[in-house]
Design a binder for these strands. Structure first.
Lengths: 257, 257
DNA sequence: CCAACCTAACTGTGATCACAGATCACGACA
DNA sequence: TGTCGTGATCTGTGATCACAGTTAGGTTGG
């Protein structure tokens, strides 16, 4: 279930230190600039990313309990980075630590879920408007690629639920990326982190929502609006997508009291 | 500068365990219900709250460096809870940990500040609308009380800068509380956490912005709209408040490149 | 007088240990 | 047979230690 943490591909042991140059050009780093500050990722950040991915994909069900030691063992790291990751996610209410005992995935009440949905309509709707205004052709092409991937996964037989969830996420965030507002994306990521477990839990196993096609319809309308740079239409399409998904979740009703 | 962490007033040693009852009424907990789950606050949470308060109040300047060990010593706790607090705040981009060296308060660029301002307009504007629709008379009275406190602090001679900052914060969040959307408040708190250091840094020492009175004017309009339950006017007043503050910050220009 | 080196102090990160408290299963008593 | 006490086990929290990497300051060599 939880994959062991792999060493990051760009992880490099101490910087080459540029040993082969003499005195000249010591202040002109040539290509050294474009290697770009080699992002050193701490173990805690990697565990955080791992757990975040599991949450937004619905791989961790609401109410599911986690144990720091178990997660640490599963990921092949010490308990310390897991503590850091859980602490961060708990600060975002993406996980909750029970007063006495374990940490678990929060169980949303109907009221909480509806609030989250309203906030998504406001924030992601705004992002869609901005994206329609500022998207470059390349960015639109990326959204289109993810839209195609989603359609393929949804119409496959049998439907590729995991692929559809991933493509849906990529599509949405490619759109939001086009808004060019990093803090906005962070906000949306936090919303997805809270809504992900309940939104995507029943995707795997019984992807009945994919059959309806409302998501594909909304995505197509969104892409069309994006190409026409029609911000109002983009917002409307995205709101339809969110509303349809929320209505489905409410109908199957796995929400808490 | 950093106050030592006090033991929480409601901290209680293990629950009374109700030793004096016999067999009867064992299922009827009398008054035991109303004691209410005694909220146990962990040390890490307290340090987090302390740092958050310092950030939103502008007591920590952008670019200021923190040291885990120093903060721990100043607060009279071990390094561990401070690590947790900094880790959480760093996840919110309210602090940033430099790859090699210390942790510091982020320095916003002009672009980042403008993005934050736009997001505040969207999110807090929405909150103001909702608050105008759903505020109870008691909540409106609370907003009014904070508004009066702000006016007193701003018009005092000499101006009570710290008091004005606190009253301004209380006023805004009393308003947002009236919207009745907890996750929305969390979102706004995160925005304030990022904008606080730059928004309030020059309040203390040289509270020249208070003289202008634009804040008092916007607050009065906001309160009036709230009483008339005019959501559009409430949003407009709040947007004017935010825009005026942002314009002032940009004019004094302590923003990074 | 300036620059380069080098050492000492300090940084966050991660691991390990200790501990209070909660849960759960088992067994004794009514 | 049902209920309560009780100990073993596991939980997150906090403290302490070890370490690689960085910074700053002093010193030496030019």
């Amino acid at each position: 279930m939880i994959a062991p943490v792999q060493p990051p591909p760009d992880r490099v042991s101490p910087p080459p230190e540029d040993a082969q140059d003499g005195v000249s050009a010591a202040r002109d780093p040539w290509v050294l600039e474009e290697v770009g500050a080699l992002t050193r990722e701490t173990l805690g950040e990697r565990v955080t990313a791992e757990l975040r991915a599991l949450l937004v994909a619905g791989r961790l069900a609401p109410g599911e309990k986690l144990s720091l030691r178990r997660v640490a063992e599963a990921l092949g790291v010490s308990m310390m980075p897991v503590r850091e990751a859980v602490s961060r996610l708990a600060a975002d209410r993406a996980l909750e630590v029970l007063p006495g005992r374990a940490v678990r995935v929060p169980m949303l009440t109907l009221g909480q879920f509806r609030e989250l949905t309203r906030l998504r309509l406001v924030v992601e709707g705004f992002a869609a408007e901005e994206a329609a205004r500022h998207a470059t052709p390349e960015q639109i092409a990326q959204v289109a690629a993810h839209e195609a991937a989603f359609r393929r996964a949804a119409t496959a037989d049998p439907p590729d639920a995991a692929g559809a969830v991933a493509a849906n996420r990529d599509l949405h965030f490619a759109l939001y990326e086009a808004a060019g507002m990093p803090s906005l994306i962070e906000m949306i990521e936090r919303l997805w982190l809270k809504a992900g477990p309940i939104l995507n839990i029943d995707m795997r196993g019984e992807p009945r929502r994919l059959k309806g096609g409302s998501a594909m319809q909304a995505h197509a309308a969104l892409l069309d609006a994006l190409r026409r740079r029609d911000s109002a239409a983009a917002r409307a399409a995205l709101e339809a997508d969110i509303a349809a998904a929320a209505a489905h979740i409410e109908s199957v009703g796995r929400l808490a009291s």
